[in-house]
Design a protein around this nucleic acid. Structure first.
Length: 210
DNA sequence: CTCCTGACGG
DNA sequence: CCGTCGGGAG
């Protein structure tokens, strides 16, 4: 495990991506990005994220927003039922926490629209807390690397969750660095179709290649 | 056709 | 635990 963890960080330059939402530790800006990124490609989110923060720069402005206007802004992303989450989450945080984000997973999970993944990202990025984070990409990488041969919806598989937990606990870096590194690795190298084995820094230890 | 930094209701 | 939501890109 320390091997894959180390390799993913050290070869970061091979698959580095950069996004605006990675330059903030403001939980509000992180939450907005994560809402938009659910089942959605990051490049697709870029212009929408800019538009959204321009109109709704802080949590108070969203709490007073017109949901129809939010829906209009995020329409290019699909999954339009998400538009309600933005306002409900903002209202909830203002009502329960006077506008200041809580820093425990238990509390974060009570925020409308915030599930296991978004809560984990907020903890890791905004509060530098090492927590288990599993998305469909991370699950795919671990499934392949360790030769688990799982199919279908593998994100909630117990073994995958354990491995991800180990992966993050073995990283001697900010948890967000591991998060961004493995997501970029999975998006650019360990792709769903036609993974790029030729330039993959993990191929020597990866059971999927063999 | 599959897939995208998932969350929710049933 | 499982089906579903969704537009856009490849």
């Amino acid at each position: 495990m320390s091997n894959i963890s180390k390799n993913i960080i050290e070869n970061r330059h091979l698959y580095k991506r950069d996004f605006r939402w990675r330059h903030t530790r403001d939980p509000y800006e992180i939450m907005i990005a994560e809402f938009m990124l659910q089942r959605t490609k990051a490049n697709q989110v870029v212009p929408v994220y800019d538009d959204f923060l321009k109109k709704y720069p802080d949590i108070k402005s969203v709490s007073k927003a017109d949901i129809a206007d939010i829906a209009r802004i995020i329409r290019p992303l699909g999954l339009h039922w998400r538009s309600g989450h933005f306002k409900k989450a903002a209202e909830y945080i203002i009502r329960e926490y006077n506008g200041k984000f809580p820093s425990s997973k238990e509390e974060l999970l009570k925020i409308p629209g915030v599930g296991d993944y978004v809560a984990g990202v907020i903890l890791a990025v905004a509060f530098s807390k090492n927590t288990c984070i599993v998305d469909s990409n991370i699950a795919r990488v671990l499934n392949r690397y360790f030769g688990l041969d799982l199919t279908g919806e593998i994100r909630r598989n117990k073994k995958i969750v354990e491995l991800s937990d180990e992966l993050f606990s073995h990283c001697n870096c900010e948890p967000k660095e591991m998060l961004f590194a493995i997501i970029d690795f999975s998006a650019l190298i360990c792709t769903p179709l036609n993974p790029k084995h030729g330039i993959c820094p993990l191929k020597d230890d990866c059971k999927f290649v063999k």
